[in-house]
Design a protein around this nucleic acid. Structure first.
Lengths: 102, 102
DNA sequence: TTTATCTACTATATTTTTTATAGTAAAGGT
DNA sequence: ACCTTTACTATAAAAAATATAGTAGATAAA
């Protein structure tokens, strides 16, 4: 952006469909299929892309269980957890403007 | 989403490319062409779509100047200004994790 | 021990969004 | 009269999201 936007580092991945929701749900560590279900059948191609993007940004970490290669868990890194403050503000905003929803 | 996500009301428009940046730049009231320039030539079709979305959500307001129909200004509503708290948190996060950028 | 199920994806094709580019129509300046 | 600015819209191409099916390994059930 011409005029620097101090948050462009963040909007590059937060302003992408599903990212904000995904971070919310990853407050608990989750498996791929759990995320799919929770997110109402979000298609696996998109979910896979998004997880890779967030992993590359070091917002989440992917852990494969050594005893079972098919067991993979995703969770927030310290950097990712630190983003939850943003979610909190967002939750507050939603409760102020859509009180019936929260 | 199956399991309710309390912020889905917000992520529906914030999790869309350019929305977060747009709100940031609309801290000051701006005209269409200014936004285009500031956002590094963001194409007018997308900008137009986004402005309409945010207007529909009552995050921004569109004002046509009565003396000149070609003079249109966009600015944040109270609801939109209230979202700036989220931007602030985001700015803080960026400064913590990308100190060289801010 | 064959068969079925679960998990974590990838492949392919279709639909939706975004983008680049050009164009329009009104108003204002020169 | 002519050029520029403004706020868009139109069209076509490129990129991203989705639906759907499929794969491969591991575990469970018959």
């Amino acid at each position: 952006m011409k005029e620097s936007c101090p948050i462009s580092k963040a909007t590059a991945f937060l302003g992408v469909k599903w990212t904000l929701d995904l971070i919310y749900f990853l407050q608990q560590r989750r498996r791929f299929c759990e995320l799919q279900e929770i997110m109402d059948g979000l298609n696996p191609t998109t979910l896979s892309h998004r997880l890779k993007l967030l992993e590359a940004e070091e917002i989440i970490q992917r852990e494969v269980f050594p005893d079972n290669q098919r067991h993979v868990e995703y969770s927030l890194t310290a950097k990712g957890k630190d983003l939850l403050a943003v979610h909190e503000e967002l939750t507050n905003w939603v409760s102020r403007w859509y009180p019936e929803e929260v």
